[in-house]
Nucleic acid binder design. Structure first.
Lengths: 151, 151
DNA sequence: CCAATATGTAACAAATAAAGTTACATGAAA
DNA sequence: TTTCATGTAACTTTATTTGTTACATATTGG
């Protein structure tokens, strides 16, 4: 199954925007993400509707983060993307007549619901600020290794 | 994304087989599942390789359960199907050069790993026998409602 | 004002993966 | 030896994400 990587994409884009002074164009972001500017606009447009970013047209236009990084969680981003289906496996039929299939669905649904609840809880715990901090640490570590190597 | 419903399918098939005396043909199972006999053989073939069912050709042939229902868990079935990807969302790139993307992946991977671990734990708790018992209860309830209605 | 730049969006194409289908080989039993 | 059933390869269909083209719309600098 071809899977949805938009959450990963918007996180990548938002962190680049956070590290960058001034707005970033769809073109610039598409290069960071190795994708197409239209795909960027399509996806970022969903974040704009959720009030998380703003866009400006024309000269010096582009995309800007519209909120404090510490207030945005992965869960909010997942919601902004329309809460796409998390699981690649699932029931054959959501409303089966067959009692056997009803038993199967009940068992699977409850297991999937628990896993989804845990995932969304974890998502709610992770803010953009914490990701930015993680990146800063990776960057510092990488620089330290590089300096050491150069010396 | 079009999702994988084989786990749901094989559960449905196995419970029908459990309720049925003697082997069931791919044709009969395909009617229970509203699908095609070849799809049934393809999927049940994976369970056969795992030793969970047996098949016989020719007259009076078909599929039989080869193990005790209380010893087979959903997790074993998931494994027999080749442990297909559970999530429909994920990273854009598994081994990114970009440090930003590495931070994003690390955060997402750990959340997904926890959710997957929980799901597999739940799967390991559910046996075919417990599903069969759930079905028996649904069936009894349905009969009681029907008898009451007919009276 | 107008040319350049950027987003907004519709429409369509490509890529991917599950499920369905056709065709036929193989083996078992009446 | 005919019939019935599985085994399997090859292909088609369907669904979904992502990529692409084309063009409208808005903003800014000259």
């Amino acid at each position: 199954m071809k899977h949805d990587s938009r959450l990963s994409s918007v996180l990548h884009a938002l962190l680049h925007m956070a590290e960058h002074d001034g707005p970033m164009t769809s073109e610039a972001l598409s290069q960071c993400l190795n994708t197409n500017p239209v795909v960027v606009r399509r996806t970022m447009g969903l974040l704009r509707k959720a009030g998380l970013v703003k866009s400006d047209r024309g000269h010096a236009g582009g995309w800007r983060i519209a909120v404090d990084l510490s207030t945005v969680t992965l869960r909010q981003l997942h919601e902004a993307l329309g809460e796409p289906a998390i699981f690649a496996v699932g029931n054959r039929n959501e409303r089966p007549e067959c009692l056997v299939e009803q038993s199967v669905n009940a068992a699977l649904d409850s297991a999937f619901a628990e896993a989804e609840a845990l995932l969304l809880t974890r998502f709610a715990d992770i803010t953009l600020a914490s990701l930015a901090a993680d990146f800063a640490q990776r960057y510092a570590t990488m620089r330290a290794r590089k300096d050491n190597h150069d010396a």
